[in-house]
Design a protein around this nucleic acid. Structure first.
Lengths: 152, 152
DNA sequence: GCCACTACGTCCAGTTATCGGACTTACTGC
DNA sequence: GCAGTAAGTCCGATAACTGGACGTAGTGGC
């Protein structure tokens, strides 16, 4: 009964990273968001080794992020599509892109600009679903818990 | 002149992933957001091998995401703090957590709940900075570019 | 029919990274 | 002096990644 089990923390971040916490996995997902759903295209546009891409796609499919479906019987051809869960990864991709645009383009224009249907270049703001305010780390606390996050 | 250079795509997502595109890197950052700034704490709470944590912290510091500062001279002790750039990673962490909460807790309560200063449990919505609307992949297009993303 | 080409992988061998556990150094507190 | 903590380092075994060649199933041109 005396469960002294300290740590590793079980947390949704860790769980999510077990699935998409690797460069090629996320880049594959990025490509599908950009409309490139075919194996060879993903390999070319991401630069991933074919073997690695095969492995990543396999787990993404197994975990329900992508769906592999045949698009042609006779030349046997397949495409990978985002499932509902996969589509929900969009904020992850967008926030990674946002961060790179802000901190990794030294002065230069970002390598790709996304345009929102409102007509403006996409800037992403993560907001609180309850109050609508932009979220800052300092305004958030873990639930009744020993771990504090005072300061930064 | 005829630059036939096809691909690998240069994109902010890829660049960002070169720095934080690995499980332990992101989990280290998560810990710092949660207020745990010391080496041993990060190792325990993340479950990362000490060696790997050392390596990740080194690159995070080199890339300007974290800052390593001494907190005590005499027992030589250090802590890792988020830089401005590091703080900007919050949306990434939050959206990963959000995704896990939504897709990886089968029915059960999420392992950690964050409370926003507005008093409500944090739900994150990624919105367009121009029009304020929540962003959906289908409402976004890459700038004047051959790649389409019709369908999903 | 034959050749060239594409798509979607697999196979291989060499290199690199990860892992867990033990060990080191520099202290403090009893 | 002895136990304990913090922050790493070192090590050997295993696993993962990498680039390039190869395989297979088809198409289209001539």
């Amino acid at each position: 009964m005396t469960s002294i089990s300290t740590e590793p923390r079980t947390c949704s971040v860790a769980r999510t990273l077990e699935i998409v916490g690797e460069k090629w996995a996320l880049l594959a997902v990025r490509e599908v968001f950009l409309g490139n759903r075919r194996f060879d295209e993903m390999v070319r546009k991401t630069g991933a080794p074919r073997d690695t891409m095969t492995a990543r796609l396999k787990t993404l499919v197994a975990e329900g992020v992508l769906e592999r479906r045949p698009v042609s019987e006779h030349p046997p051809r397949f495409e990978y599509r985002l499932t509902e869960a996969g589509l929900d990864l969009y904020p992850v991709i967008v926030s990674l892109m946002q961060w790179g645009d802000r901190h990794l383009t030294n002065g230069e224009a970002p390598p790709m600009v996304l345009t929102h249907r409102c007509g403006h270049p996409l800037g992403a703001v993560t907001t609180c679903s309850s109050c609508g305010e932009p979220i800052h780390a300092r305004d958030v606390r873990p639930t009744p818990h020993r771990d504090s996050l005072e300061g930064n």
